[in-house]
Amino acid sequence: MSLTAEKITYSYNEGTAAERPALRGVSVFVGRGGWVSVVGHTGSGKSTLAQHLNLLLTPKSGKIEIDGKTAVPGSSGARELRRKVGLVFQYPETQFFAETVREEIGFAPSNWGLKKDELEDCVRAAAAAAGLTPEVLESNPFRLSGGQRRRVAIASVIAMKPDYLVLDEPTAGLDAAGVRDLTRMLNEIRAGGLAVVQVTHDLKSALEHSDMMLVLEKGREIYAGTPEETASYLAEHPVKGLVLPPLVRFAGRMRQSGFDIPIISGIPAMLGALSEGARRI
């Protein structure tokens, strides 16, 4: 069971003078329970890729496969396949419209003709998965804190019972505690079998949580690898708009100065190497 994008090419305003290529042959693969982070600068095509995974955009060439089935845009099958991939847009809370969290989360399932108690079960399960307590369901979503609002937005996508969750910049605008809580929640959801594809320029959260990373630049795939491999690559080949976390940058400087330490090192390892002067000459 997997979600695959194969050699996707896409241009905005195709066939007009304003044509702008956004993706030039990008591939990504995520299996159930996996976590892939797509990282890149503004304009690298990462949001465009996210929208392809959810079949919101139709590629010019290449294909999207969901659980082994090729998604044919516009077909009745595509509708069914799209439901398997939940997309959480950037700053999703700006799209809130309901007066209570219950109504907000239950909006999509309420269109499925569920009975009242089935709908309530669905809302409660989604809220719980997103780490929201039942009391929050009565609240006005506009009155919640930034971190809570983000959870409500994610819960409203989880309520559609997707197998793959694609999130566009899920940590943007959250404070350190908010980022930590959110990533912990995503890890729990993933443990339940849901796959996560995170589009982000937050390299810290990408390096900490992903199984695999994909680096995009101007619509091209420039690197794919594990977090460790990707950090080493980026330390040696800086990419515009992608700044490694401070400790990784510090380890990079140590490695450049001849210290033999992994690029993702703990502070004790760094201090140990520095105080022993364990520099390779």
Binding site: H41, A172, G173, V243
Partner: peptide, 12 residues
């Protein structure tokens, strides 16, 4: 929080 949406380079 007027720099929250900036990428690291934009922030710098």
């Amino acid at each position: 929080e007027a720099t929250s949406m900036l990428d690291p380079e934009g922030r710098a």
